[in-house]
Design a protein around this nucleic acid. Structure first.
Lengths: 218, 218
DNA sequence: GTCAAGGCGTTTGTATACAATCCTAGTGCG
DNA sequence: CGCACTAGGATTGTATACAAACGCCTTGAC
């Protein structure tokens, strides 16, 4: 693979996982040294990141990481809820019975894992459940866009699962969604999924306020 | 502004407006000559385009323009409908009275222009109406994403306005949307907007089939 | 005649050199 | 003492040179 692309991916991963704070400047020369290449591929990687909005590029000044602030984060959660709702709405009238079975299996996995209380494992199982629904929307473009935003929100979605009782609540919401999909009820399926994700945003909001009070976040 | 950015914008514009066909290779050297620069800024521009999906980059082979096919286009229209629906849903509970007035004015402009029958002018007036709603969703991220897709679909949305009676139909739908927003009815406002845009997709679909029959499109 | 292998030209990918711009620190004037 | 201006260094943006990979065409063997 092109070196520039791997650099872009690695930098993306580092920004996602919080290795950089908001406003940090990404020094081309330092990065070039760290990756053992010249500035050219580093610059190409930074260009790519600037398009996806992970960094801001100010002409003749450099590129700076742009972590979403609290407001933008909540906005993104809201959009995520709308997108997932759309997936659910469309999936209700398009999903096939074997996909429904796979969805039930995925939900069983969620339940199994939740009993153990492993938040990371639940995150993965939960992701499987949701991605199946994206796919069953029958709209590849919608699926791709939803996955993109999902990935962007990943570290923050993970956080809120650690709240007490959240996994159980999430599970019971899954049951309702599954039922609505079985019934082929577009509106109910869409609303339930939208609320299911919107709740995540609210939980995250609470969490954020708590952390802020402890001066862990700005 | 950086030369590379202007090149990216110009290329984007050219791809949007259909100066290139699907699969055309964008030759770095030719583009460099055309823009009177070296390959470096051209390459940076192409990298950016590849992130937004306008071109596909195949390692060691080059970048090729990637025009959406009929299927993807319909998928994009469907997502556009969902996004606009979301804007409408949120705007219904967040819009302020002065914004409602501005929206009414924008709709009046649409009506005036429609009487003349100028499709291009109607497109612009219509865009003003819709963008006002995006803004009133109170969600900057949603607004930006919706505008992005709107821009991507622009040339195709324009097309369907030329169908007989479409402008009048569009106008009457606007009235319903405006009323729902005035009532603060989230669900109705969202559904009406979603359908308003979904109809555009269907009209476009018909148009496409017609053109296909005339062997104008593949 | 057909298919496979290898060389050559073209194009992409990367490194380096140079130009242009910006930040900063230092100096001089009010 | 403070502010404006300028020179220096550092950093970004662009051009060019070089390396590596790909495709095509030739050539030869079966």
């Amino acid at each position: 693979m092109r070196r520039a692309d791997t650099i872009a991916e690695e930098l993306e991963e580092m920004i996602f996982t919080g290795s950089y704070d908001n406003g940090d400047r990404l020094d081309e020369i330092r990065l070039a040294e760290r990756f053992g290449v010249s500035r050219t591929p580093v610059r190409e990687a930074l260009q790519k990141l600037s398009v996806s909005g992970l960094v801001e590029q100010i002409p003749h000044r450099g590129v700076f990481v742009r972590q979403p602030g609290p407001v933008e984060l909540l906005e993104m959660f809201e959009v995520m809820a709308e997108l997932e709702g759309a997936c659910g709405r469309l999936a209700a009238s398009r999903i096939e019975s074997d996909a429904l079975d796979r969805l039930a299996v995925a939900n069983e996995t969620c339940a199994t894992v939740a009993k153990v209380g492993d938040a990371d494992a639940y995150y993965r199982a939960n992701e499987g459940f949701h991605h199946l629904i994206y796919m069953q929307s029958g709209n590849g473009f919608l699926e791709a866009e939803t996955r993109r935003l999902c990935r962007r929100l990943q570290p923050f979605r993970r956080l809120q699962l650690r709240l007490r009782g959240r996994m159980e609540q999430s599970l019971s919401e899954h049951d309702g969604i599954l039922e609505a999909l079985r019934d082929g009820d577009s509106e109910r399926s869409g609303s339930l999924l939208r609320e299911h994700v919107a709740v995540q945003g609210e939980k995250f909001h609470h969490l954020m306020i708590g952390l802020r009070a402890e001066h862990k976040l700005v």
